[in-house]
Design a protein around this nucleic acid. Structure first.
Lengths: 223, 223
DNA sequence: CGTCAATGAATCTTCGAAAATTTTTTGTTT
DNA sequence: AAACAAAAAATTTTCGAAGATTCATTGACG
């Protein structure tokens, strides 16, 4: 029931992060400290802190004396992130299957249940995809690897997942469509709980590959 | 010939990083912004920026409204970092062996040569180990994976290497001894250049394991 | 004597303005 | 006109002080 390993968040950090991830702030957009100062009615220091932290997570990039920008996206980056995430998830999943006990099993089952209980499409109108679904989707994948007993691995995975999720969000932003294959998630969970490491890893890899392929198709057509 | 992928550095950032990595600033030490302000004769903002960036690299940790501290070390963390680094290096090395061409081979050979050309012991008196050797050691391992064609993977690896190197530096700080098995490095390079991925990965894993074992022994005896 | 609230000191955090840097505009020369 | 230099504007970065927050000390009360 405890997350918040790496979390430390000012309000402006959260909002900026949210707006970048949701695609409201487009890749390449400039992030002038004065504009943001006014936008969030707050001083320059918190803005800088937040941008600094966002840079460390890869959502913005900083050029000395030239300011911050929303970090760019590209087909190559998408593929690179996906490929790397696939490897990391594979390792962490194996470790987790090896070390996980009854409590871990319960977490996985619970996360899967919650994921399947939320609507994937957002009915609040703005076509931004269900924030709730994204959250539970993230939680499910984290639950799978949560027993790997490697804080380092989990931290790395979280970052990669965030990056990948940005591409998902950008895609949703335009297609208003989300890929939610209930069966895939269930199969991964089943294999993991059955301690079938090879099977679970294989399913997880395909899962990521399918999502990536869809995102790639969209990215080619998109801006 | 190009590094500086993720590098962005103010003078205070570099100095603090150096002092933490060299063990001059001990794990757990408090980093009061006022003290540092005086120490580096600079305002609070650059200090904060630098600490923020160091936090994102894992060298310091921040507790809200409670300030910064040099991040702690532990046997568990050492093992976790080493284990994770081992996996990451394995993957990146495989990819690199697969994709690397003539230029990569040259880089590896050159890095190995430079590494073997520097003295491992520091004769400048302070028993801090040869900064030069550490730099070339890092460069060698980076050269090995430099052809993996995955900026994400390389960035992750660099971070893990930094963390691991901190344990090395802390160990050197007290033993004034460094583990420099020339043969091991040569063997890894040879296997890599011979495109023997399994062999290279195996050697690299043993290399990391041996270093880690030595560090662990020291850590148990140390503070 | 121990517990707890209230005060005081230390420290982090934020603010608004000054300083340094980059970008744009303007003006001059060939 | 084109190219270059100088001035102006916009922006980032830094500074020192004011505003919060936490930590330590003190004093009152049960």
């Amino acid at each position: 029931m405890s997350d918040e390993i790496t979390t430390s968040s000012s309000p402006v950090f959260r909002r900026l992060r949210e707006e970048i991830l949701s695609g409201h702030l487009r890749p390449g957009d400039r992030l002038r400290v004065d504009s943001l100062r006014e936008r969030y009615s707050v001083g320059g220091s918190p803005i800088r802190d937040a941008l600094m932290r966002l840079e460390s997570e890869g959502f913005v990039r900083l050029e000395q004396n030239k300011g911050f920008r929303v970090s760019s996206v590209s087909r190559e980056d998408l593929l690179d992130v996906a490929r790397t995430r696939s490897e990391i998830e594979s390792i962490a999943l194996r470790w987790s299957i090896e070390s996980g006990g009854m409590e871990w099993e319960g977490d996985v089952v619970g996360a899967l249940h919650r994921l399947n209980s939320v609507d994937k499409t957002d009915h609040s109108g703005n076509g931004a995809g269900s924030a709730e679904w994204l959250r539970y989707h993230r939680a499910f994948h984290l639950a799978l690897i949560s027993a790997c007993e490697s804080p380092t691995m989990i931290a790395i995975y979280q970052r990669l997942f965030d990056q990948a999720e940005r591409y998902v969000a950008l895609s949703i932003k335009e297609t208003a469509e989300i890929r939610d294959d209930v069966a895939e998630h269930r199969e991964i969970a089943e294999a993991a709980l059955a301690r079938d490491a090879d099977g679970a890893v294989d399913l997880a890899r395909r899962h990521i590959a399918r999502t990536t392929a869809k995102l790639e198709r969209h990215h080619s057509a998109g801006p």
